[in-house]
């Protein structure tokens, strides 16, 4: 998916969080967003998801203005916090995943994804019995349920153990190679052993966007 952000300014109430952000991505690009706590990283992606309401002609997804965009199912999203999720009521991993699935993903494809993310054996577990890291992986799998063309990951591996972090980024790289655009927020560029093509660093609301030229290429 192509992403175009032009002169985006956004704030909550009176405080401006993002000032005049612009960047653009082609299909298959991989953007890393870095910046200190509170610099507006999550705010920026919530603008791209239609969660934060923004004016016309600021963000385009595949050349469609986000204010007119309908197919948010094309975007897989792993939020930073899962405060929005209701935990206490019993529901299994499989039940969540199938309620989130609107694509023609076959059962086998789903099993493949679960295996890649390392939660194959957790399928029928009640989510209340999962650890934080396991839950995080369930939400990563959920983001992949609708064959996304854009993946937006907000610090997806916080609380996930080293082995699974490695497996996760391997899976993300594979998906990226298949042409899926990926946007990743991270505090640890080294841990995220990914083939970034672009990077934006946010500071005091301003963003510096640059292309990443890999030395080994």
């Amino acid at each position: 998916m192509r992403v175009n952000v032009t002169n985006l300014t956004f704030g909550y109430d009176y405080r401006t969080v993002l000032k005049d952000i612009s960047f653009s991505l082609k299909s298959g690009d991989f953007l890393a967003i870095v910046g200190n706590n509170g610099s507006g990283k999550s705010t920026l992606i919530k603008c791209m998801l239609g969660i934060n309401k923004i004016p016309n002609s600021k963000i385009f997804l595949d050349d469609i203005d986000i204010t007119n965009y309908k197919n948010f199912r094309n975007i897989g999203y792993v939020p930073q916090k899962f405060d929005d999720f209701n935990y206490e009521f019993p529901i299994t991993v499989n039940e969540i995943l199938s309620a989130s699935r609107y694509s023609k993903l076959s059962e086998d494809d789903v099993l493949l994804i679960l295996d890649k993310i390392g939660i194959l054996e957790l399928q029928n577990e009640n989510i209340n019995n999962l650890s934080g890291g396991q839950l995080q992986r369930v939400f990563i799998a959920r983001a992949l349920m609708n064959k996304p063309k854009l993946l937006i990951l907000d610090e997806p591996t916080v609380g996930v153990d080293k082995e699974n972090v490695t497996a996760f980024y391997k899976a993300i790289n594979e998906l990226n190679q298949e042409g899926i655009t990926v946007i990743l927020i991270t505090h640890n560029l080294r841990e995220a052993d990914c083939h970034f093509t672009h990077m934006i660093s946010l500071h005091n609301g301003e963003g510096v966007f640059k292309e990443v030229v890999r030395e080994d290429e």
Partner: peptide, 12 residues
């Protein structure tokens, strides 16, 4: 919608 309203919106 019951379990995760934000994600439900995202799913259209």
């Amino acid at each position: 919608i019951s379990f995760d309203e934000t994600y439900a919106k995202l799913l259209g």
